[in-house]
């Protein structure tokens, strides 16, 4: 591990001040510390925001505001979350382990970096870790990689669960930065790799996540289906977050987000439009999947994700609409 300095911010202003000075934010550290040990990330200066007090959950008429420092464990256990936004609780509990969820935070989890083995291995080429070095994953062992939103430069997924649920719930990421406060719809938070995969998200230099806002609950059936190689403690191969309301046997409203399928948490409004107003049937699920996956492209080991996503979508829609 390279030497670094660690300062503790005591409020948002002191955190922003440290960020202006070039510090990197650390919250739970469940991902960053691992990356620092491997020297995938080598910050000189860290500012811990654990003492900034951004750890409350507040409900108002607009919805729920989850502070950036609320741990995954606390968020998933919150009675308001469990009652009105169960999708979020389910997604969080599908991820990591109790120990990690006790430490990992809402803001930190949004910034979780990919699990691409080539990103983690400094002996390998990776444009995300070292821009311009190439992508060893494209022609390598790419079983866990993305089939949507990939570029020549990068095929890595965003690996988490929480953000996928937030995407289906139309969450908004609240930030503070050098130019004041910003509200970033979560669909615009994670960045497709394009030519520069080194930046995972649209946070600007010096900007700090302060909270995530969830709009008022929809009252729909909420399902998080995480498909993975073992029953727990594994990243998703594909996950589906669904919030579906039925009326008179037809789909009245639905939002669907997919994890570990694309380079970012994936949502396709056209798929939702196709489904709304229709009577659920296997044929409809197939049509929806065909639309979702029309641009999907596998890289060998991950080809299976395309039929798997179609199947996971069918299972989820079937479950959400047959009750």
């Amino acid at each position: 591990m390279k030497s670094f300095t660690l300062d503790h911010a005591t409020d948002t202003d002191s955190a922003l001040s440290a960020l202006r000075g070039g510090a990197t934010t650390i919250a739970g550290g469940t991902n960053l510390v691992d990356l620092m040990k491997l020297q995938v990330e080598t910050p000189d200066r860290l500012v811990s925001i654990r003492r900034t007090g951004l750890d409350t959950i507040v409900e108002d008429q607009d919805g729920l505001r989850v502070g950036a420092l609320v741990t995954n464990a606390d968020c998933a256990a919150d009675q308001r979350v469990r009652t009105s936004w169960p999708l979020l609780a389910k997604a969080i509990l599908a991820g990591a382990s109790p120990q990690l969820r006790n430490r990992a935070t809402t803001g930190g989890n949004l910034c979780q970096r990919t699990r691409c083995g080539y990103f983690y291995d400094t002996s390998q080429a990776c444009n995300k870790r070292e821009p311009g070095s190439g992508c060893a994953a494209r022609d390598g062992f790419n079983r866990i990689h993305a089939v949507l939103g990939t570029s020549e430069a990068c095929i890595a997924t965003y690996p988490g669960d929480m953000a996928v649920a937030m995407l289906a719930l139309d969450a908004v990421v609240l930030t503070q930065g050098p130019n004041g406060a910003r509200e970033i719809p979560i669909a615009e938070f994670h960045r497709m790799p394009g030519e520069d995969p080194s930046r995972d998200n649209t946070l600007k230099p010096g900007e700090l996540i302060t909270a995530v806002r969830l709009p008022a609950p929809t009252g729909g059936v909420q399902i998080y289906r995480k498909v993975r190689d073992r029953a727990s403690y594994a990243f998703a191969l594909v996950s589906v977050a669904a919030d579906v309301s039925m009326e008179g046997g037809r789909i009245a409203r639905c939002s669907l987000a997919f994890g570990s399928l694309g380079t970012v948490p994936w949502r396709d409004r056209a798929v939702e439009e196709l489904l709304v107003g229709e009577t659920p049937s296997p044929a409809l699920y197939t049509k929806a999947a065909d639309l979702l996956l029309k641009d999907a492209r596998g890289f060998g080991h991950n080809d299976f994700k395309i039929p798997l996503a179609a199947r996971a979508l069918a299972a989820t829609l079937h479950e959400a609409t047959q009750g």
Partner: peptide, 18 residues
Amino acid sequence: GHLVNHDLAEYHVPVHAD
């Protein structure tokens, strides 16, 4: 010739839930 899944996150031994 390098081993890609060289840790317990990606070399999947059964966990309790399995």
